[in-house]
Simulated scan of single mutants.
Amino acid sequence: MLLEKKNAIIYGAGGAVGGAIARAFAREGARVFLTGRTRASLDAVAEEIAAEGGEVETAQVDALDEQAIETHADAVVRAAGGIDISVNAIRVAEPGIYGIPVVELSPERFTLPVTAYLSSHFLTTRAAARRMIETRSGVIVTITGMPARAATPGAGGVAVAWAGIEALTRGLAAELGPLGIRAVCLRSNSIPETTVIREGYNARARATGQTPEQIQAVAEATVPLKRLPTLADLANVATFMASDQARAMTATVANLSGGLLADS
Rank of each mutant, 00 (worst) to 15 (best):
A129Q: 03
S120Y: 02
R204V: 08
A207H: 00
I143E: 09
L123I: 03
M146L: 15
T211H: 10
F110G: 00
N189T: 02
L176H: 00
T144I: 12
G180V: 01
T222M: 13
I100Q: 06
G154T: 09
T115M: 01
A183E: 06
H121C: 03
M132R: 08
I215S: 04
A183V: 09
V139A: 14
V102F: 14
W162T: 10
T211A: 09
Y98H: 08
G145L: 06
V139M: 11
E134N: 10
A163R: 08
V158F: 08
T152Y: 14
V114W: 00
T211G: 09
A183G: 08
L118V: 02
S190P: 01
Y117L: 06
A173H: 04
A127H: 05
A129C: 03
A128S: 04
V103N: 10
P147E: 13
I181F: 07
T211P: 07
E104K: 14
Y201T: 02
V218I: 15
T195Y: 01
E199A: 05
T124E: 06
P178Y: 13
G171V: 05
V184H: 05
Y117F: 11
R227K: 15
E213D: 15
R109A: 15
G171D: 06
G138I: 13
Q210N: 12
S119M: 07
P147G: 12
T111K: 02
V158Y: 11
R204N: 09
S137N: 15
T115A: 03
A161F: 12
G209S: 10
L118R: 01
T195E: 01
R182Q: 07
P107R: 04
V218C: 01
L105A: 01
T211L: 11
E108V: 01
R136S: 15
A203Q: 12
T230D: 01
V218E: 15
L179M: 13
Y98C: 00
W162V: 08
L172P: 04
A161S: 09
A173W: 03
R187S: 15
R204I: 08
L105F: 04
V223Q: 04
V141E: 13
T222S: 14
L225K: 06
V196N: 04
T142D: 12
L118P: 00
T135C: 09
E199L: 07
F122S: 03
V139I: 11
G164M: 12
T115D: 01
T194I: 10
R109K: 14
L118E: 03
R206G: 02
R198W: 05
P178R: 09
I100L: 09
C185H: 09
